[in-house]
Every structure is written in C-alpha cells, then in structure tokens.
Nucleic acid binder design. Structure first.
Lengths: 161, 161
DNA sequence: CTTCGGCTGGTCAATCTGTGCAATCGGTAG
DNA sequence: CTACCGATTGCACAGATTGACCAGCCGAAG
C-alpha cells in the first residue's frame, strides 16, 4: 500500500495548476513560466508521478460529447454471499459504468453510469441488475453539472501546512 | 440536445486509448503506432479537442496521495428560495468539493468531497452546511474504490454504431 | 567542518513540432 | 461517366524541445 501521501510545496502546486490550465506545454515552457531551471521541473514532475500523486496525463473524454448525454449515480444493494469483487467484475464489463465504490449507509455500492438517453439508461440498469449478485438498484439522475470535476483548488489547499 | 455529439470512429477510439495508456507520447509516435500519417493524427486530435469531446490533457491528481485519504458523497437539501446557483457558488469556494451536480430524487445536490480524515470530513461538512441556503446534508463515505474512474471502455463502445 | 540533496545554468546531439505543399483516395452530386 | 469535395498521405523545412550530461552553489544535517 502506498498510503504515503506526498506533501506538496508551492512549486508543486503552481506546476500542477499551470499544467492543468495548458496541458500541452512542455517542460521547457513550464520552467520559463515558473522561473526555475528546466531540470527542477523535470525532477518535480518525475517525483510526483513516481509517487503516484499524479496518476497520468490522459485525455479527458467528455461522455456527453461522444453521445452519452445522461449521467446518473446508481446505488446497488448486493447479496451478501456474493462478494464485492464478483460484483465489481460484473460492473467492470459494462462500459457505461465509469466508476464504482463500496460505501457506508443504505446501499453497498455506488457507481457512476452514463447512457445515451433515459431509455438507454434503463437498458444499462437492466444489464446491471441482471447479475444475480445484485439485489436492487436505486437510481439518481444528474440533471446539471454545478461544479465539474476539479482538483486544482485542492492542490492549493494541500500546500498550506 | 443542443450539443451535437461527435461520432467517433475506430481510429479516434484507438487514438484515445493509446493516449490514455501512454499520455506523454507525441503525435509522431502516435502516427507510427497507428500506421497513419502524422497529419491525420494531428487533424483528429484537433477535431476532437475543438468539438470538446476531449476536454484536455491535464494532470490527474490523486487526492488520496496528497493527503486527502477520505472520499465521500454528500447529498444536500437546499432551501428553495436560495437558487442552485447561489449554493453552487458557496460550494465552489470549498476546495474539498471536487464536483457537484443537481439531481433527481430525495435531495437536490450531490457532491463529491474529500478530506484528510473522518474528523476533517466533519469540518468540511460543517463548512458546507454553515451556509444558510443549505438545509441538510446526508453523507455517504466511500470505503473502497472498486472501479477507478475510466472512460476508455466507453470510447470503444461509442464506436459501435 | 564535511557531506548530502536539491537547485542552477550551461552544453550537446537527437528528436519532435508546426507548417506548408502536391498528390491520391473514396464517396457524392450532377 | 465525370467533376467535385473532404480526408488522407508523403514529403520537406526551420525552429523548438527533449534527454542526457556536468560543474558549481547553497542550506540543512551529521
């Protein structure tokens, strides 16, 4: 377990912030904007990615713009004798399931699901509950995105020691 | 809806998949792996980003590894006379709020919140409900991440017409 | 005082990028 | 059938960037 969290300093935060704003700029340009040596930027980025604090620089696909305009959160209640892992394996096979977590409270698993339409969402949910390990699904549809997923404010907050 | 979604073809999907696997490779390397001309890759990427299907290539920060090991989903019930926007503005000021959506069902807003610990989560929630427009918060803590956020399977599914 | 790790500023060859261009291909409209 | 259109290809160029080095500087720790 790499539960060792990294303590970010101000340079790290600015680095991430700049990179988030203009992801395609290179190490050299970053060093210029931050007024530090290029090697320093490289070293910091290497450290952050090596320790896992930065998972990657993958393309952020917007599901709504590739045909999946409906987003929902679905809470699942599972049969205890089927493990979480078995259910997770089933969910992983469904591309519309973007993420899944085990949770506290009334429900066992919370997952994020997208679909092409409300009717299509029904199809996806049917596919999910078709698995015998899942007893019941409770669906919440997201109407509007008030705050899109973000982490920049968090990185700034993380530097206050 | 108003936003016409982009219909991905197989090349787009492979492009995204490759880029997701090795985000730091350049256009030239992509063109070699996909056995197409460099200009084609550039044109495809430009098109995808221009139409918004790819939001960006920002660094994916893992909150758990910069000190925020607790993740939770919080459902908010708001006073009707305060608009969603006012509440959204309040939430946006709290760095631990990673995203927020208006939702159907019993609750008005669902947001994703991280914190340094369970005690720290209490502090964040207090900060949230301290705003008068918010009447009540219902908190669900995520225990384990069964499926980390992903979109690659979705892009593949999006190509099947 | 000495060692150590991090940062700086510089060099080098190799590679990649942005940008044009003409030619080719496939499908479509007339 | 033929002309046209967008997409793709292959190629070229100058300029920028990268990865790899290295010597020197500095503050903190021993």
């Amino acid at each position: 377990m790499t539960e060792h969290s990294v303590q970010l300093d101000e340079l790290d935060a600015k680095l991430i912030e700049l990179l988030a704003a203009e992801p395609r700029i290179g190490v050299l340009e970053l060093s210029r904007r931050l007024a530090v040596a290029r090697g320093t930027v490289q070293a910091r980025l290497d450290k952050l990615t090596a320790r896992g604090a930065i998972k990657g620089f993958g393309p952020e696909v917007v599901p709504a713009l590739i045909g999946f305009g409906v987003m929902s959160f679905v809470t699942l209640e599972i049969s205890q004798r089927y493990g979480h892992d078995a259910v997770a394996g089933h969910l992983a096979e469904i591309p519309e399931v973007l993420e899944a977590h085990t949770i506290t409270g009334s429900g066992d698993i919370l997952c994020r699901i997208v679909a092409r339409s409300n009717a299509d969402l029904q199809r996806v949910i049917d596919q999910i509950v078709g698995y015998e390990g899942i007893r019941r699904a409770h669906t919440i549809i997201a109407l509007a995105e008030l705050i899109p997923y973000r982490t920049v404010p968090l990185t700034k907050a993380a530097t206050r020691i």
